[in-house]
Design a protein around this nucleic acid. Structure first.
Lengths: 227, 227
DNA sequence: AGACGTTTGTGAAGCCATGCACAAAGTTGA
DNA sequence: TCAACTTTGTGCATGGCTTCACAAACGTCT
């Protein structure tokens, strides 16, 4: 009977990447007591075109009302369902240096569906320390841990040279969704999903655009060049 | 005379986003003493198709040798130049909580062209503390700082509610490249470049794919549905 | 009840990025 | 010198994403 398109149809990756933004904005609107939004208004808040927003939402189903707009609560719930945030996602962080500590205490973590169940580091100076109520353990314990209390997502926050070994350990333990903060390309078997977040990549992209701006502004050197 | 394509031609955004990865891999190869690579080998290391790598590099110019491959040093240098990493980029971080500390001591920062020149936070408990040799100052001092010692890139590592105000301060001081770690959409005037890195967005995208995997594996519920 | 104004959902068109396949260009070895 | 082999650079086709533009659908007001 249920014909929930989120579970049957293919949702384009580009759309999935924008859904969290829509959801965040809708949550803020809901807190402010807003009951209904048009695609025009919501798109303006998020910074996309209204047509794009409508097409994105159309992949989830038909939750708007013509002539009126979208009910904020309903739409937020449907996006949550499409993203899988109505269930709970246990997360483990490996590498409890500065970044690991920052991630563990990051407030955005707990807000929606994510819950830290494990913190790992092999440095004896860190083991047994408690962060946000969770004790840091050596990585080798992750296999048992995962069997007792399954981990859905592993976060790698180690230095680059250790990343592949940590990744292998996570995969070996049976974890198939990995968020990698180390500046390294991980090789994983089929079926394992890796996303990478890299600070220096982002800085380099910014530098590229900054360079273009400064060249466009004040540079006359290469004004006349034959093709 | 110089016909450097990096300065004249348009480089697609998708290509720019991959260049840092190529550069990182080339640097590692250079350290390992590798002198030359084919597009096939390098593409395998990075995890892209060789045709894509060649097309990406063709936007920078023609630095390969047919029948041989690419000289590792030369190609690394040319990518560095295209990205603007041959110059030095002074960076300021605003928000010195856990994340700000982690970013400041992140090793990837200093490796290539980026240099931390300012750390800011309005919390009196943090002001005057020193991190990586730089003193934390209240945000209001950034205007004078920028005039004396220009800042190229501002990094926002504050909680979301403060982000827009901090952003306005950065823009007001004259900074036009911003890297935003706060989960908020920033509105900026024309000409200011903002990139956002968001942990919870990445987690949510992973959750989506994890959900699809588990549905595909064990769910028979919506097997028969009319279109 | 019916006309009017608003907003959604979606074909269709255009654009950008990816992947294929091959000629051009270089090296190596005889 | 020349043939055989390797690898680059790129024209072309393909596919996916974005944007446009409008019919269909809803609420409202008379």
């Amino acid at each position: 009977m249920s014909a929930d398109p989120a579970l049957r149809r293919e949702i384009p990756d580009a759309t999935v990447a924008r859904l969290p933004e829509y959801l965040r904005t809708l949550s803020r609107l809901a807190e402010d007591g807003v009951l209904s939004v048009s695609s025009e208004e919501l798109a303006a808040e998020v910074g996309v075109r209204s047509a794009q927003l409508r097409k994105d939402l159309s992949h989830l189903g038909s939750y708007g009302v013509r002539g009126v707009g979208y009910d904020v609560e309903t739409l937020a719930l449907e996006i949550s369902r499409a993203l899988g945030l109505t269930e709970d996602w246990p997360v483990a962080i490996v590498g409890m240096g500065n970044l690991g500590h920052a991630l563990a205490s990051y407030s955005g973590f707990v807000t929606k569906g994510f819950r830290i169940v494990g913190l790992y580091d092999d440095d004896p100076a860190l083991v047994d320390e408690r962060v946000v109520g969770v004790r840091i353990r050596p990585l080798r314990e992750i296999v048992d841990h995962h069997q007792v209390d399954p981990i859905a997502i592993g976060v790698i926050a180690t230095p680059a040279p250790a990343a592949q070994a940590v990744c292998d350990a996570l995969v070996g333990a049976g974890i198939s969704s990995i968020l990698n903060f180390a500046p390294a390309v991980l090789s994983v078997p089929e079926g394992v999903d890796v996303r990478r977040v890299d600070l220096s990549t982002e800085l380099q992209i910014l530098a590229f655009h900054a360079q273009r701006k400064s060249l466009a502004a004040g540079d006359l050197r290469s004004a006349v060049v034959a093709p």
